[in-house]
Amino acid sequence: MNVTPSNMDMLYQEIILDHYKHPHGAGLRDPFEAEVHHVNPTCGDEITLRVHLDGETVTDVSYAAQGCSISQASVSVLNDLVTGKSVTDGMAVLDSFTQLMQGKGQVEPDEDVLEDGIAFAGVAQFPARVKCALLGWMAWKDAVSQALVTTHPPTTGDPA
C-alpha cells in the first residue's frame, strides 16, 4: 500500500489511534528531577514533561500534552520505550526514532528497537507532521539532559 496524501490508513495506523485514545503513562507525577515545557510554534501543540531518574535508569516519564493524535500517540510510545531503560539505551531509541522520522520514508524501521514506534514510519512521508511526532521526544531529550545535570552535578575542579 502506497503512502499518499489521500491514503490515511498509512498515516493513522491502528497502533497510533490506540495510543491516542488510550495514552500510556499520561499525567504529571512526583518525584522528578527535571520538568520541561515544549511547544510546536507552527501549530501550538504543547507538552509538559517530567523525568525521574534513579542513577542511570529512567524510572518515570510523566507528561501533560495538548495536541493532535500523532503527537499524543508518539509520547505514549515514548513512555513505553524508555521507561525502565538506562539513559544510554533510551537515547539510542531516540536516535533511531529521529532517524526514522527524518528519513523521508527511506529508512527501514527496526522493530526490535522501536516496537510500536514503527507505526510512525508513514508519518515520515508527511513533512508537516514530523514535528508532531518528535515533540514529546525532543522534550524528553531536553528533560533528561537537565536531570543529569541535577543528579550528576559537574565537578568544579575546586580542591576541597
Partner: peptide, 18 residues
C-alpha cells in the same frame, strides 16, 4: 484535534488551515 481534521480533509482534497 484540528491537525487531524485538516489531514483527513486534505485526504479528500479539501484544503483548510489548522
Amino acid at each position: 484535534h484540528p491537525h487531524d481534521v485538516s489531514q483527513l480533509l486534505d485526504s479528500r482534497g479539501v484544503a483548510v488551515r489548522a
